[in-house]
């Protein structure tokens, strides 16, 4: 076990997989000579050379499509978006080509590719650079969507994503890159499609992922002080959802609050809530509540931006609501 930052964990995952498999390469804007816009690929050019660590022009649609083409004929590309906000100009490639190829070809072609990069509200980046697109991608059959919250999960899930034979949308969070945590040494794989209980509890199930795990864990501590024992589940994989883990927890707590950084309407929590209610409506002692980013474009102003995010206070308030507490 060693303590490393989230970005180093991602770097280790890519480097180990590139050592292991000659077909794996990394391409994207500033990934090579600049060492990565967020320094995730630091040192990889020196280690693997320009054949496998490739700086691209600012042409997301073009290089995403190239990655897909290369994957169709046997390579295993990792395509980095400087931020997932920029994936919007490549969304045709991801949705129409990466996600559909296997189905449209009657199973003849696979697209083993990882699209990865930062996302989320990182502070004063305003409306164009703060997107959270997990619900967009989770909507699409054919895609796998992963969002790690900790360095250990970042490493273990990225290695699994690179080994996956399907297109994986691997969404990091800009404010997590410097976070440090314990990461198991050596071969460390976290399975795709498995949630993890990050804090066991019996009174209410808090369902979250990525950066929102932090506010959720802090809220659980506050609630503990009030005598409410919250279970915190990090879903880790957005699609396919580990519904069993959620149902087992709700079967125990009979209450759920979903904490997510995307917008409320048609957001991820809407889909998760629907699936829980279809299977476990009778188990619920209160309606499922959601804590989301408020429904407006993301403002530049720091205080305004902070006011939109799921916060400890907002999570605590929703938990009190489902507990029918009057504190």
């Amino acid at each position: 076990m060693s303590v490393i930052a989230y970005r180093e964990a991602l770097n280790q995952a890519m480097s180990e997989e590139m050592e292991r498999d000659e077909r794996v390469f990394l391409m994207g804007e500033e990934v090579a000579e600049y060492d990565g816009a967020y320094k995730v690929s630091q040192g990889m050019l020196a280690r693997f050379g320009p054949r496998r660590i490739i700086d691209t022009p600012i042409s997301e649609e073009g290089f995403c499509g190239m990655g897909i083409g290369a994957a169709m004929v046997g390579l295993r590309p990792i395509v980095e978006f400087m931020t997932f906000s920029f994936s919007l100009v490549a969304i045709d490639q991801i949705v129409n080509n990466a996600a559909n190829m296997r189905y449209m070809s009657g199973g003849q072609f696979a697209v083993p590719i990882v699209f990865r990069g930062s996302s989320g509200m990182a502070g004063c980046l305003a409306a164009t650079h703060s997107h959270r697109l997990e619900a967009w991608y989770a909507h699409i059959p054919g895609l796998t969507v992963v969002m790690p919250a900790t360095p250990a999960d970042a490493k273990g899930l990225l290695k699994s994503a690179i080994r996956s034979d399907d297109p994986v949308i691997f969404i990091e969070h800009e404010v997590l890159y410097g976070d440090k945590g314990e990461v198991p040494d050596g071969e460390h794989l976290v399975p795709i499609g498995k949630a993890e209980i990050k804090r066991a509890g019996s009174d209410v199930t808090l369902i979250t992922y990525s950066r929102s795990l932090k506010a959720t864990m802090a809220a659980a501590e506050t609630l503990a002080g009030e005598g409410i024992d919250a279970e915190v589940i990090d879903i880790r994989t957005i699609r396919p959802l580990d519904l069993d883990t959620l149902l087992e927890s709700v079967g125990k707590t009979h209450r759920a609050v979903i904490v997510e950084e995307d917008w409320p309407y048609c957001g991820l929590g809407a889909g998760i809530s629907d699936r829980i209610m279809q299977k476990a409506f009778d188990e619920l002692d209160a309606p499922i509540r959601r804590v989301t980013t408020k429904d407006a474009p993301i403002p530049y102003n720091r205080a305004l931006e902070a006011s939109m995010l799921p916060s400890v206070d907002r999570v605590v308030a929703q938990v009190r609501d489902v507990m029918y507490s009057r504190l």
Binding site: C64, G65, G69, M72
Partner: peptide, 18 residues
């Protein structure tokens, strides 16, 4: 999708070279 496969072809060619 008109034009959508044109980058795929470059990627296929990239794989040959790689």
């Amino acid at each position: 999708i008109v034009g959508s496969h044109i980058p795929l072809a470059a990627g296929v060619a990239f794989a040959s070279k790689y």
